[in-house]
Design a protein around this nucleic acid. Sequence first.
DNA 1: TCACCATCGTTTGATCGACAAACTAGTTTT
DNA 2: AAAACTAGTTTGTCGATCAAACGATGGTGA
Lengths: 195, 195
Amino acid sequence: MASTTPEPARLPDAGPDPDTNLGWSLAVVLRRWHERVEAALADLPHGSRGYHVLAAVSRGEPPTQAALAERLLIDRSVMTYLLDDLEAVGLVRRRIDPHDRRVRRVCATGHGREVLAGVRERVEHVEEQVLAGLDAPSRELFRGLAQRAAVAVQEASPATDPCAAVRQVVGDGAEDPGGTGSRGGRRRTGRGTRN
Amino acid sequence: MASTTPEPARLPDAGPDPDTNLGWSLAVVLRRWHERVEAALADLPHGSRGYHVLAAVSRGEPPTQAALAERLLIDRSVMTYLLDDLEAVGLVRRRIDPHDRRVRRVCATGHGREVLAGVRERVEHVEEQVLAGLDAPSRELFRGLAQRAAVAVQEASPATDPCAAVRQVVGDGAEDPGGTGSRGGRRRTGRGTRN
DNA sequence: TCACCATCGTTTGATCGACAAACTAGTTTT
DNA sequence: AAAACTAGTTTGTCGATCAAACGATGGTGA
């Protein structure tokens, strides 16, 4: 840990700005992001989470609920009624994978993609406000760096799920209009559109 | 479904990468930061929060609890027993401001500063792991950008506290070894060293 | 000076969300 | 076919967050 880095400019304590607290900075930015996005997305069933799910589902192959939960750092049990509510409003759809009838592939409906477009605009507007302290190129730079760091650290999560190999299934014309079955009846008590 | 949109044209103003989800990236990085810091700081009374408090208190003028709470985005009521526990271990100290006997200025003890040094090392080590996806200069850049964005958006919090003018008091030799009085007795039920 | 209001810190209470465990359905292994 | 395993759902518990009430102190205006 002697850190023989050729960076003598960084002294451990003598820095005039020892407040380079990564945790604090990230917490502040994320907190404000969350606040404002929640406010801007009050109509979406679960606010920012609904947005994340919708965005994750709207590109590429329909992921399974487990894959979604892992990617979005949401517990499986939470994902269940999150999707329940999104499905109830017709934004996403659960379809049983014909190749493995245990898993449910979540895909966005046309309406969902439509809604996502507008929502994304609002979110981007919020993000510009949140990153107002940076000029435009710095904003882009910051986004890129954050993304790179996130992807890398997400892949390097050893304890959780070792192999999240995405099955290359689906894409065929197998129909399953029978729906998900949706065995259970109602959700927990006040699990409405939140709030 | 989504395969019918082969991404024909990229608008220059919009994000070139559709997955430039700032919220997601920040959430992932912060989550991992939090996980690992909590693990590394299991001996500190409140983990990462204890660290934040200790770091914020160890530089400049001793802030009031309210200022501390505002800066660290912690509720005042939480700050109370957070400081209770830190004080119980002798890391910080509450002193009634003689100029305004309502406020309590929190300052780090010698032991607190000593502990902070070691803790800071551990945290920096964790941060290097969390930002392992970026090379060293990118890491520094990212930290700087995050800090700038955080400071700016923190200052631009309209609804909360309009003027958080830091009083230029204290600094004189006014002694108040009488302590805080600490009217209350014990904390809530299991508020031990957490966990 | 004395009521009146604002602020700081503490305490209490209610509510919300995260997490773990049990359970069912379906698949893979032996 | 039985056992073991995985995906998703349901339920229950625990902890944290937030709002409100309270006591103490300071400032303000009649």
